[in-house]
Design a protein around this nucleic acid. Structure first.
Lengths: 342, 342
DNA sequence: AGCGGAGCTGGAAGCGCTTGCGTATCGGGG
DNA sequence: CCCCGATACGCAAGCGCTTCCAGCTCCGCT
């Protein structure tokens, strides 16, 4: 098979096969203009020589690098699994399309790499996870000719293509479920509202509560930052309002809520129902298990990659965002049984 | 400043500056052979034109891509923050050295990308997180001329350069602490022993317990898989042996242990001390807060990048692994006070 | 038998950058 | 004043691949 050290070039394959480099290139890339038998011969030779195309050269010549970029949120909560799950999802999807994945994380200097991302030909297109939106370079990117797909809605640039989970639909389903199981005083713990997903979930909550004509005032609203500790603190501040249910912006905060409720000897779900959002691993590991909304990041990653590739190929963007369904998962923390589907 | 659309090439910068492309290249890359004033003029022109070098071309010409590769473990536990933290750490470290980061995660087909990783010039070197060791292609990689740095000890290839946390030292310090606070029947919950870190921690535990001449037998050993649920189950199986302390292979399992102990009304730390490993975010969010060993992944990432770059530059590998210190953090779950430093 | 066209194939021109080598320029010592 | 070494800079040859274009072969048609 392949010699481990030396690199085999196109020329060598051509020489051994007795054809031109042009033919080899066409054959190996599946382009037409090569007869079937020659193509096979070339492929056999390439395989036996262990030929691997040099990406840099290919990229230079073709203008395409076969690499996708992924920009991760900046100030990430360290116990958040979002980052890791997203990398996995996108990396897997990219690999399925034979693309490599380049990742930027941590501090992204505006003057630095970002501007270069596409202009240097390092990547063909780029996926920006929206969690840390608001940074000006994102809009700059959007304004360029670059192929960009956002994960999550951008607060201002509504025309930009994005894919994401159904924050609104999931939250609405959650509230419907609570109401249908008899809850009337539903408290809410929001995530950090400068984040679009947190704001969207909160807005959907408010609208759902209004739709049901429920009691709702400031004393039933508390703010957190997606951490367990903030969920705990928020819940304590909610207790005077005597909620019979608490909807947390994510599962971590719901875990904090459970802890706070246990401390004051409130039973879950008998006295207070608790629900989260994400379907993080912890949701099934706490007692009682958490009712939550599944956030299917694998699907998000897959969609993002597919549409990015489509953009790169010059196809028009779809005219509306790509929202993956976010099903409600009813577990013990809200009573365990879903309402009859009547 | 820069025109957003069109790409500026070296030639244009040269033309505008009135010098040759060679001079521009040297000036911009800080190589000698250009006088100071010319260098400044060129830099000014490049800046005003918004010139960005084309990485593919540079890579082709120089044989260096300025990109580092990172291979993440395959079958990752989804609630594990390891992956995300590692990506962050390495990406940040790489950016500090002006290197881009390419990531492979999920299923790595042996036939596929891995073989190509270096032979195609896509990356200059590669960091393999060892967690999923045992796969044959890693050894294949090690056998090649490639620049590779392992994160974590490789079970077989002891000669391979690796960086990692101090599993042994941290565990030893933990056991010493427990013994010095009066614990005598110390139970252990191991991680998945096919993973080197889990095995190393277990071995260190056994040796430390032996060093102190403590009671130790099979009934004080239980096995888990790093998940909360497995820590819970393992703890239940440990209870008949009446341990006065439990050392879990990571913080998640320790959390499971806390839950199990609470169920049987054992007080922590009065009846049983509990300790973890990692200093995950959850360690300070549970009640009581967890004594644990900090795993400084940022330091690991930084070291890995630095040494990889050194390898790429052809410098010899250090003759021993690069282990970052893993300090013991004493918290409430083992009694809250560390032993006197007497 | 002659001719047009379709399908293959090779030659060669780059893609944008780095770098070895040669030339020009300058300064200082003999 | 000349010679030599050091320094600054330009020329041009690639790096390995893709792709345009032209030439060729071979077939089917009239």
């Amino acid at each position: 098979m392949s010699e481990s050290g030396e690199r085999v070039t196109l020329d060598e394959v051509a020489k051994v096969s007795g054809v031109s480099t042009a033919a080899v290139s066409r054959a190996l890339n599946g382009r037409e203009g090569v007869s079937a038998d020659v193509r096979e011969r070339i492929r056999a030779v390439a395989a036996s020589l262990g030929y691997r195309p040099n990406r840099a050269a290919r990229s230079l010549a073709s203008g395409r690098s076969g690499v996708l970029g992924l920009v991760l949120p900046t100030g990430l909560n360290h116990d958040d699994t979002y980052s890791g799950r997203m990398v996995h999802a996108v990396a897997t999807a990219a690999a399925a399309h034979d693309q490599a994945l380049m990742v930027w994380a941590g501090t992204v200097r505006p003057e630095g790499p970002v501007r270069d991302l596409l202009s240097t030909g390092l990547v063909d297109g780029i996926i920006v996870t929206a969690v840390g939106f608001g940074e000006p370079w994102i809009e700059e990117l959007l304004d360029g000719a670059a192929a960009v797909v956002l994960v999550g809605r951008h607060p201002k640039r509504t025309e930009a293509l994005w894919v994401g989970v159904d924050d609104a639909g999931g939250t609405a389903a959650l509230v419907d479920h609570l109401v249908s199981t008899g809850r009337r005083r539903i408290g809410v713990i929001t995530g950090p509202l400068e984040r679009v997903d947190a704001a969207d979930r909160y807005a959907a909550f408010v609208s759902a509560v209004g739709r049901h004509g429920l009691a709702f005032d400031d004393t039933l609203v508390a703010h957190g930052d997606y951490s367990i500790a903030s969920g705990y603190a928020a819940t304590r501040s909610l207790l005077p309002a005597e909620p019979d249910a608490i909807v947390a912006g994510n599962d971590h905060m719901a875990v904090g809520a459970l802890r706070a409720l246990r401390e004051v000897a409130k039973r879950v779900p008998e006295d207070v129902a608790v629900a989260g959002f994400d379907d993080a691993a912890v949701a099934t590991e706490v007692e009682p298990s958490l009712t939550t909304v599944r956030q299917d990041l694998d699907a998000v990653g897959r969609l993002a990659v597919e549409h990015l590739l489509r953009r790169i190929d010059g196809q028009p963007a779809p005219d509306r965002p790509l929202v993956v369904p976010s099903p409600l998962l009813v577990r013990a923390s809200t009573g365990g049984r879903s309402p009859r589907p009547s």
